[in-house]
Design a protein around this nucleic acid. Structure first.
Lengths: 147, 147
DNA sequence: ATTAATGCAAACGATTTGCAATGGG
DNA sequence: CCCATTGCAAATCGTTTGCATTAAT
């Protein structure tokens, strides 16, 4: 219901534009709308395709669900977002693209950043000789107390 | 094509029987067949439903794919296996049910145990006050060198 | 103009479910 | 015998794709 933008609208648009431009992606109307929802306020975000689709429509923008999926894949391949799958049903897209731990609420299926500074992996298993580590995913599954 | 059982057939059957019994699950013909494939030789295993289905048929056992799925879910709920989802398409079932790190080969989509002893998490982010940690999933994604 | 991006609807693959048939305890 | 388990086929869910239309550069 709240129509108040989180930050100055022009700044949000500006950020989205730079974000797309930096990856060499054409700033179409729908990409811009999606990008604004993702990085408009500069905060990190974990969204599902469905969520983004709904959010976009709420702003009055017209986008098809297929385009949301295709766009998220494009963003992902361009390195703008990172795809994370935590349980079989649906994946999340994280605007923060470096290795960092996540909290996952099992009851609400919400994904959030865990404080990075508090994770310290002292020793990581050495990869087999013919392999490089592409990335390390750490998901801390949370259960509400007294559930 | 190899018809040679990995271990003594009776021992394998025996193990499967105890495994099911310990969880209070009725040892039907198909559950027994699946259980043998999973724990018959005492080694830890990471299987997909499709793999298990195929493996079962190769032994000449008749099982429906639906039953494989339902049975894996039953095993999972009984705490006999742990379900792991690493990327959107399909989940793995691990016969080892404690927290431990995994290697994931991005090119072949294979999941394997990473040497546990080599992982050391010095500090884990503290869970929010109203939450308990249900489990911690660590997946080390591997990319073949020079790919 | 040329080429890429969009939207729809149909296609998809993994998993689940309804329900009748079967089989353990 | 009774209730759990099975199997099949149809249903579901998230995601992708083919292709004609539209919009960027």
């Amino acid at each position: 219901m709240s129509e108040k933008p989180a930050t100055h609208p022009d700044l949000s648009r500006e950020r989205a534009l730079r974000w797309l431009g930096g990856a060499g992606l054409r700033p179409t109307r729908q990409r811009l709308a999606l990008a604004e929802l993702l990085v408009g306020d500069g905060r990190d975000r974990h969204v599902t395709a469905e969520w983004l689709f709904a959010a976009c429509r709420n702003q009055g923008e017209t986008v098809s669900l297929a385009t949301v999926y295709n766009t998220l894949r494009a963003f992902s391949e361009a390195g703008l977002v990172r795809e994370i799958t935590v349980d079989g049903s649906g994946s999340y897209f994280d605007t923060r693209t470096d290795d960092h731990p996540h909290f996952y609420w099992e009851d609400t299926a919400e994904l959030a950043d865990a404080p990075t500074s508090d994770l310290e992996i002292a020793r990581l298993p050495a990869p087999p000789a013919d392999a490089d580590i592409a990335r390390v995913d750490v998901v801390i599954r949370l259960r509400r107390k007294g559930a």
